[in-house]
Amino acid sequence: MKELSQTTRWRLISGTLGVMCLLLMATLGILLKFYIEPTSFPGLNIEPQKGSDCCSCPEKWVGYRCNCYFLSGEVKTWEGSRSFCVSQNSSLLQLQNRDELAFMQFSEQFYWIGLSYNEERGAWLWEDGSAPSWDLFSSLETPDPKNCIVYEPMKSAVDEPCKTENHYICKQQRI
């Protein structure tokens, strides 16, 4: 009789500990869901801003080096992407340097950026009218002026027909 009650006691203790463990794991999962963003972009490696509060970004945007970036989960044409960014008080990404998107170094998707051919000026220009630094795009040979540019962060850029649907990156400068 004594052995039976001791076995029952251990079963009760182990059951209680198991339930507590499940509750702690569920709580941790809920906390991570609310405090870690974004979770839908493979290869994203976000470094928090240290000693600075310059990155106050809208929900679902990534703050990095005092800029805010929106990485689309959906695909649109270049013009559709541009319109979406404008509706968010931003523009398609205008790269400043090669490591600007270092937090996306393992991304393997191509994204529309804000570079297109301006027929009036006969040149490739960013949306703000400035000329790109072509050393940003080591793999881009001679792009077709009828196309727009898609960019794979930290790797390469290619030109594609602007009507093709791709993911896109919007940028809000916070400086």
Rank of each mutant, 00 (worst) to 15 (best):
L71S: 03
S87M: 07
F110M: 10
S87Y: 06
L93S: 11
S72G: 02
L101N: 09
L95E: 08
V86E: 12
F84P: 00
Q109E: 13
T77D: 06
N97E: 15
L101H: 07
N89I: 05
S83W: 04
Q94W: 10
R98W: 12
S107E: 13
W78K: 07
E108W: 11
E74R: 10
A102E: 12
V75Y: 03
I113R: 00
A102T: 08
N97C: 10
F106M: 13
Q88M: 11
Q109N: 14
D99Q: 13
F110E: 11
S72R: 02
L93G: 10
S87P: 09
D99V: 13
F103L: 09
Q109D: 15
G80C: 05
Q94E: 15
S91T: 12
W78H: 10
I113P: 02
L101K: 07
F110N: 12
E74G: 12
N97F: 14
S72K: 02
F110G: 07
E100L: 08
C68F: 03
V75Q: 08
L71P: 00
Q109I: 12
R98S: 13
F103Q: 05
W78A: 01
Q88Y: 03
D99C: 04
S81I: 01
N89C: 02
Y111M: 05
G73K: 03
S81C: 06
W112D: 07
I113F: 02
Y111F: 15
A102G: 09
Y69R: 00
E74W: 06
L92N: 08
S90A: 15
D99N: 14
S91K: 10
W112V: 06
E108A: 10
Y69S: 01
F106W: 14
Y69D: 00
E79Y: 09
R98L: 14
C68G: 07
E108T: 13
S90F: 04
F110K: 05
E108I: 11
F70D: 00
L95C: 09
S83K: 11
Q109W: 08
E100C: 09
C68N: 00
Y111V: 02
E79K: 09
F106R: 14
F70A: 01
F70V: 00
S91Y: 11
Q94T: 13
F106L: 11
Q109A: 10
N97H: 15
K76T: 03
Y69L: 01
L95T: 08
G73A: 02
Q105V: 11
M104P: 09
Q105M: 11
E74M: 04
T77R: 02
S107D: 14
Q105A: 14
E100H: 09
